[in-house]
Design a protein around this nucleic acid. Structure first.
Lengths: 204, 204
DNA sequence: GTCTATAGGTCGATAGAC
DNA sequence: GTCTATCGACCTATAGAC
């Protein structure tokens, strides 16, 4: 395994793929998912565009690999810390908070990944990759939730529903923040999503 | 104003734009937002691709017009009925319910529109159109909420936060349902989003 | 590196509308 | 006749595949 940047020491396919995916991420973050092409990725990596096709077989395969790796990475970072062993409401609020913190730490990357996912969903060749992504997402939520249950020594009457609700809340929260970038309201919005609209102060 | 379909009776620009936008919607729904091109739209409408460019000035202008018209139409239908004058929690649950009903009535169209919005957000030429769309969305929520307040004779301590939370919940709900198509859980997930995670049944 | 397909944009000419 | 909508052809850039 060599680390030199500019030389081209006949990397193995695996390494080469890794390097090209890194380049693809850079292109995507800086110029948008629409700018992804064999050529733009190759240029970024400093190789002949032919090589990208060789390494992945097709553009669709490149995008599928990119989607897979990036969504997994993101999910791993986002849900890395277990839910605090408090009430479900508090635990969910904490999870939403750390999720949004992750989004805010690199909004561009998250936004572009969402764009790529939307792209993939509309493509016959990539729709499976998109499905796999969201399935993995739900699985990761499920694991955290089961851990929380174990810590508290309880069971949830409808685990699947809670997973779905967390999924929806997290996704909507990210979408809301990305479109408004309203930092001032973050805490309160999370509070309403986790605690429900019944707790909102209403004045006569 | 002629109504014949196949002849080309020299439509005015306004009519022509309308017709072309209809064709663009068909292309988008059937083949995805990525398939939108001057040529695909023109072919669908049965005119020379040159004409699309002529009518809109550029592809970006076409997409902006499409985004504008479609998102406005959708929002108008979704938030047509006022919130029921009950507690906020019940009102929000009802709103989420009718919102999702709308999504479920034509999932493809909603999905494609979301795709187009994601596309637009990554494009310098279209980012303003995307912003305008979400601003209009929030405005429509605000109007319904103010009506609800007036009906109940109350005020909300933090109107903006509630708007944001509804925005996030609705968006996340749609996203969740579109990826899972899980009809069986819809009611319960809406219940959790509107009522909060504090109300979820936890068993020892 | 080359081939081919596609896409956005433009030019000149034509044909309907007034 | 003039104006505008319309068309077919063409140019150039780009992108995927081999």
């Amino acid at each position: 395994m060599k680390e030199e940047a500019q030389s081209r020491p006949y990397l193995g396919v695996t390494e080469r793929r890794r390097q090209l995916l890194d380049a693809a991420v850079e292109v995507m973050v800086e110029e948008g998912a629409g700018a992804l092409s064999l050529r733009s990725v190759a240029q970024r990596a400093g190789v002949a565009h032919r090589l990208v096709n060789y390494a992945f077989g097709s553009k669709a395969a490149l995008v599928a690999a990119l989607l897979d790796r990036e969504s997994e990475r993101l999910a791993a970072r986002v849900w890395a810390e277990p839910l605090p062993a408090e009430t479900l409401e508090v635990a969910v609020a904490a999870a939403l908070g750390s999720f949004l913190a992750e989004v805010r730490s690199d909004p561009r990357r998250f936004e572009r990944l969402a764009e790529l996912t939307a792209l993939a969903r509309a493509s016959d060749a990539l729709v499976d990759a998109a499905r796999a992504e969201s399935a993995a997402y739900r699985l990761m939520i499920a694991e955290r939730l089961e851990l929380w249950c174990a810590q508290r020594g309880v069971r949830l009457a409808s685990l699947q529903v809670v997973i779905s609700a967390i999924h929806a809340a997290a996704d909507g929260l990210a979408e809301w923040w990305l479109t408004t970038r309203d930092d001032a309201q973050v805490e309160e919005v999370i509070g309403v999503l986790a605690g429900g609209f019944g707790g909102v102060r209403v004045m006569q």
